[in-house]
Write a protein that binds this DNA or RNA. Structure first.
Lengths: 116, 116, 116, 116
DNA sequence: GTGGTCTAGACCACC
DNA sequence: GTGGTCTAGACCACA
């Protein structure tokens, strides 16, 4: 797995897992890969994965079953979708509008880029 | 001035100055406020402002006249516009599309939000 | 049976069994359920139950009769009561006092909560 | 500083800081010691302190000012008091009652221990 | 000076 | 096998 330097590795992994859960590549109640597995798979230190899991757990997206592993919670999809929506409407969309106005991009140009 | 914790202060100030230049609130050839003035105005350490000015100077957006101050260069607007365009088409726009698809936002909804 | 994630499962089960013995729901000399039965009943791995039994046996609360099962010892109730008292006076009570002082809970309020 | 082995060091430090804030030994808006200072003072690795600060920050008890340090937030005391109250009334108090009933501790004995 | 991240390696409790 | 914690040491960006 490749990482952007602008963001911490552990939160990029968290983002990646969140998207997979949202796309139901990991289903509700399903066990996600173990710390060591994921660490080996993406080529980072296990504690980096732990930080990822801690973050997701504190958000309520995954939960731990002692000695077994981490599982996708029932409310995971709602949580992820809600957070993403908030970010989208409060940050991504306004920023998009702001930038396109600042650059004077015409509505026709926007439409073509967005296939609208 | 308030800052987001997610980005460095000096780049937030640089962004703010760039936008003002782009909107011609500072015109070409005009002197921008001194380090100390700006520092007092936005409430940060003068060295942070220095770093901002160095950044803008290295990009060719402002230039220093020894003992007098910093001035907006002739090519400033082009430079800013080009950089903003690059960021917009390589990052803001793709991210916008990706997020809106991930959230399943319909084309109609997008159109209404964007006044298209 | 549901478990708190903050404590190990085997000690939660041990605690539950101890309380039942103390309340004489299991009487002295009585056979307690087998490893497999209990495992099925509370929904955990049999080895976890084994560990619980080992723990209780090492304290002298239950004893094994080879091939037959585990039985409540004669001194079980004393052992449990003594350990609980120690914990109560060395940990639960001091903590209770500390927290109630820290939160500034009045003596009247305490009395009413405790029916004193 | 000495630690109990039953709880993680970083959360014991968090608890200690919370109590100090609650007792206003650190006041609202005040800077708390830096990561390295605290690490040296209590004799642990700086990353352990970082985990402590992350936890407190995620709860909204402290906030970071870039390059300067961590500061006690305005709502810190409310947050701490509310959380402590919740724990007290939902866990400490019920557990206290449960244990004292289980051990058959008389009301008179309780009163004397609690100075009621 | 401040915090933030990552690695490597060790050790532990638990299932 | 699972997660959880801690240390030591390095490196980085930021103010």
């Amino acid at each position: 797995m490749e990482f952007e330097s602008s963001q911490s590795i552990f939160s990029q992994i968290a983002e990646s897992l969140s998207e997979k859960i949202l796309k139901q590549q990991y289903e509700v109640g399903e066990k996600i890969p173990s710390v060591r597995e994921l660490a080996a798979e993406v080529g980072v230190n296990p504690v980096t994965i732990m930080r990822t899991f801690n973050e997701l757990q504190s958000k309520g997206i995954i939960e731990n079953k002692r000695g077994i592993g981490y599982f996708v919670t029932e409310k995971a999809i709602d949580l992820i979708r809600n957070e993403k929506k908030a970010v989208f409407f409060e940050k991504v969309l306004p920023d998009f509008i702001h930038q396109s106005e600042l650059l004077g991009i015409s509505k026709e140009e926007l439409k073509s880029h967005l296939n609208l």
